[in-house]
Amino acid sequence: MTVNPSRKHLVLLGVGRANLQVLKGLARHGAGEFHATLVTPHPYYIDSAMLPGHVAGDYALDDIRVPLDALVEASGATFVPAHVHALDPGTRRVQLSSGDALPYDVLSIDTEAVIDRELAEASMPGARRNALFVRPIETFVQLWPQLKALSQERALQVSVIGQGIAGAELAMAAAHALAAPHGTRVTLIAGEEPLLAEESAGLRRRVLNRLKQLNVTLLQDRCTGMDGKVLELQSGASLICDAPLLAAGANPPEWLRHAGLLEEATGLPMVNERLQSEHHRQVFIVPEGASADIGPLLEANLRTAMFGGSFKKIPLATSRLHVVGGGQGHAIAAWGPLSLEGREVWNWKERRDRRQFQALFRI
């Protein structure tokens, strides 16, 4: 791959919201004395926040997926459709699945968390062959219609293996989408710790009640294996299951760990308040779950890293507001100890999600 050595080279790995906003900034302000390259496996963006709504049938796939070509062209960036195989921050090179070694001056990493299939297989033998992995999202949205079509033929026993709000939201969405016409049932296997124990009492109570309303069975247990017909659980019980949806165990990609950019104890990126790597200051990493509107600050820091100036502090604290889709045009909202739910909450959530999604591509 040819890179002009006379110009600074900014490489964007992944199309999380922050990197998309960087591209949008380049489209508005121009790149100036540097060139940008976007590396991501697929030529479009899928919004993970709206995925449960797609599963529930509230959004068509085209409502949550947008081609990248117009934004990339407007930004003047080069698009490289490839996976990352390795990153060497010492030599400032990214090894791609295409076989190219891509050099950079400054690197911005904003990639989707992944579920490592080898680790999943080690902890749940049979997972690689039998589970429908929720990540990468691109693969999941291609396979989900097949499961939905099968539920139109006969009643299924579906299990969602996942913790926290994400696991509960996916279970509620699947329960709503698959129930008719034959009564498919969904079980949420949420680990051994009480579901949403770290959340407010109001949010936890409302989510648990909503799971009951949708006939979702909640098991505080851990899956230890699967064979295509039965799930084996840590408690020693067995659970009949036609389709396990695996949402647990999503982490930063393994090449980040091999590059020495993750904390060994937590597996989280080691970054400062500027989102710079602690050990490689030309590398910026957007942590999973970062605020959706940090892109302009990230763009400013990337420019500073290339040409000098004052860095900006990037606050990572997300809003105290939690909004959880409950399927069937229903949502739950919680702000600290306050909570409410119903169709009006869903209507507000849908308008907000669509507005934020469309704003990502409005130049």
Rank of each mutant, 00 (worst) to 15 (best):
S238L: 13
S238F: 09
S238K: 14
L239M: 02
L239R: 01
I240R: 14
I240T: 13
C241P: 08
C241S: 14
C241V: 12
L246K: 07
L246Y: 11
L246G: 10
A247L: 11
A248W: 05
A250S: 15
A250F: 11
A250H: 06
P252E: 01
E254D: 12
W255H: 06
W255N: 07
W255C: 04
L256N: 08
R257N: 06
H258T: 13
H258P: 00
A259D: 11
G260D: 05
L261R: 01
L262P: 00
L262N: 00
L262T: 00
E263G: 15
E263S: 14
E263P: 01
T266P: 00
G267N: 11
G267R: 07
L268S: 11
L268K: 10
P269T: 06
M270E: 07
N272S: 12
E273V: 11
E273Q: 13
E273W: 09
R274K: 13
L275M: 15
Q276V: 03
Q276C: 07
Q276S: 06
E278Q: 14
H279I: 08
H279C: 07
H280W: 14
H280C: 04
R281C: 04
Q282I: 00
Q282A: 03
V283K: 02
F284M: 08
F284V: 04
F284R: 02
I285K: 03
I285A: 08
V286M: 00
V286Q: 00
P287D: 12
E288S: 11
E288P: 07
E288V: 10
E288D: 13
G289V: 10
G289S: 13
A290S: 15
A290G: 08
A290R: 08
A292I: 11
D293V: 11
I294T: 02
I294V: 09
G295P: 05
P296V: 02
P296N: 01
P296L: 01
L297Q: 15
L298T: 06
E299W: 04
A300I: 03
N301G: 06
N301E: 05
L302N: 07
L302G: 08
R303M: 04
R303A: 08
T304L: 02
A305H: 01
M306L: 15
F307L: 03
F307S: 05
F307W: 03
G308A: 03
G308S: 04
G309Y: 03
G309M: 02
G309L: 04
S310I: 10
F311K: 04
K312Y: 07
K312D: 10
K312L: 14
K313P: 04
K313M: 10
K313A: 12
P315W: 01
P315N: 01
L316S: 01
L316V: 02
L316N: 00
A317N: 14
A317E: 15
A317W: 09
T318R: 05
T318Q: 01
T318D: 01
S319G: 05
S319Q: 04
S319E: 06
R320K: 13
L321K: 02
H322I: 05
V323P: 07
V323W: 11
V323Q: 12
